[in-house]
Write a protein that binds this DNA or RNA. Structure first.
Lengths: 337, 337
DNA sequence: TTGTACGCGTTATCAA
DNA sequence: TTGATAACGCGTACAA
């Protein structure tokens, strides 16, 4: 039998209303001694209000939904931790959902989050443009939401993302500055927005340097090691001197392929990645990459979400764009050809 | 305005009780046509019952609490995914909490989980023996709980863990079979139970091979790369021919130290790790290690927890012990000295 | 086969 | 300064 506000009230010889006031610090008008008496009894029983019952009235659950593709993707743990920490500092809990980018699961989780009455949702969806599940969901509901990582430029939604085009530009430019001309590129899956943007940056940088786009050395990857590995095998055959992979994981695959084909990084092949995931320093030589602080992204997402939750509905949606950072390490070097 | 059971009832010209019966499939006794009528209206409005209100009655939230030290530790994402997947298959959601092994945070989260009325808790606590927060919590409450990873041999709690002693024994034995005699060891933090057990296995294997325990080559690590790195520097000075690190992350540090000191793995130094975390294959040479399937551990934990939740209170607590698996790769070789 | 009415543990409104 | 009570949305015992 858990103890309720009624029990406290009875023991303190007051009404439950009074106890409730004390609990919620609406106690300016309560006599000091009764207040103290109640507080003592609360402490004595280690009484904790039932949040479910509270939620019935307040319509708030102090819970956020966090929907991501897969926590096993090394990009996400840091991000999740950023979300968790900032949420908890603000007295919110987080329900975690992995969708694997599956549209059915996305829709299912969105509905579930609504049923569970989360106060807001942080959503990293897998596909370009407003995904179908999201679109339908938004039409039917009006839950505060922040889009994460995957940008939604044309929508009026709050979002936190990296300037991917700029990042792609920076990475490519770095290789060009090292005198590379035949720069292979391993993109993300075709339908993913951030991959398109990174590619656009790649294209810009090449154009600026008067290097024509060579479709032969552009491979579509999968954001996994395996895809990087396979693509690298192809690219190395085409004699590229440098490879820009659209995430670090694929760069790991490139390392493997290079080792198997007897190419030395960076002497025979320069490699630049994207993400700066935590275990990059395992790679020898250390991977040059583009950093996007995912912990901070998580924090920022919660910040925006709480603004929405606490603010007025008319409030302008906000967007935070995180600046990418070029982390020059040991996997890129001057082209000697 | 979200739609409620009342709205459905009114539109269908029935009582809310009837609607409720249909929703909960207690509809054997309901006339087929009214049942259909109600179902149609429900679908039309995409009505979803309010789980909060439902929880008030049923005392169930269909939510589990998952308390771990840190999702950024590469051991946990897989485990978390295992928990998530199995929980969701069974219509449960998961609230994630990171404690960093901080006792105050542990206690705070335990209390929070109780306030939020989770149906059960999966708990990986940081310290040996029944931790204080846990002890206090268990005395005051009676929430289904499963301990994960950190074993609690003497308690009557459900738990899922690896046979760490056996694992430590296997790892050490493997090195001994390769003719190593001076086998350094980098443990986990002193107070952590699994580290003690692994050490006990290490000790057993040495004893069996008549190799005396040499305290000079036993270093206390931190389960982080850095600790492995520092300890390895010390161990290499002491001329060990092999190192057993109590997790893979520390083995990564050993690789780094070995590279800096010009020792080749496995020719000059054999290394065996523990965990078989996903990104081991980034290491060259590939790390020999002890596998403990963390995804499966997560699944098993949920399985035990659901049994507790659905079973009778008197039901025996269960323990699942996961068998460790020796994964021989390229970082260990015959001792040539 | 279906409906009425109570209760879950709170908060909020109004009255005292 | 405090109390009585409605309300939140639902499940269920009991009645019809």
């Amino acid at each position: 039998m858990t103890i309720t506000i009624k029990d406290i009230a009875k023991e303190a010889n007051v009404s439950i209303a009074t106890v409730s006031r004390v609990i919620n610090n609406k106690d300016e008008s309560i006599r000091k001694d009764t207040k103290e008496r109640i507080k003592t009894i609360i402490r004595k029983h280690n009484y904790q209000p039932n949040r479910i019952a509270r939620s019935m009235i307040t319509k708030k659950t102090a819970t956020l939904g966090l929907i991501i593709p897969d926590i096993q993707n090394p990009f996400f743990p840091e991000l999740v931790r950023g979300v968790e920490d900032f949420a908890n500092e603000n007295e919110y809990s987080v329900i975690l959902c992995n969708t694997d980018g599956d549209l059915n699961r996305e829709r299912k989780y969105l509905d579930l989050m609504k049923e569970k009455n989360v106060d807001g949702i942080i959503y990293t969806y897998a596909f370009a443009e407003l995904s179908k599940p999201l679109k339908g969901f938004l039409e039917e509901n009006n839950i505060p939401m922040v889009l994460l990582d995957r940008a939604e430029p044309n929508s009026k939604m709050s979002g936190v993302y990296v300037d991917n085009e700029k990042a792609g530009y920076m990475a490519t430019k770095h290789l060009i500055s090292l005198n590379h001309k035949k720069i292979g590129c391993i993109t993300g899956p075709e339908h993913i927005e951030n991959s398109k943007e990174r590619f656009s940056g790649y294209y810009q940088a090449l154009k600026e340097a008067n290097i024509p786009l060579d479709k032969e050395i552009i491979f579509t990857g999968d954001y996994q090691m395996k895809g990087g590995y396979k693509a690298a095998k192809g690219l190395i055959k085409k004699e590229v001197t440098a490879i820009f992979t659209f995430n670090d994981l694929m760069a790991f695959g490139v390392y493997q392929a290079a080792a198997e084909l007897g190419r030395k990084i960076p002497d025979d092949l320069s490699v630049i990645g994207f993400d700066n995931i935590k275990y990059n320093h395992l790679l020898v030589p250390k991977l040059t990459t583009i950093e996007q602080s995912s912990y901070k992204m998580g924090e920022n997402a919660v910040e925006l979400l709480l603004k929405q939750i606490k603010g007025t509905p008319e409030q302008e949606k906000e967007t935070i764009i995180i600046e990418p950072l070029l982390m020059i390490n040991e996997s890129t070097s001057q082209n000697k050809l």
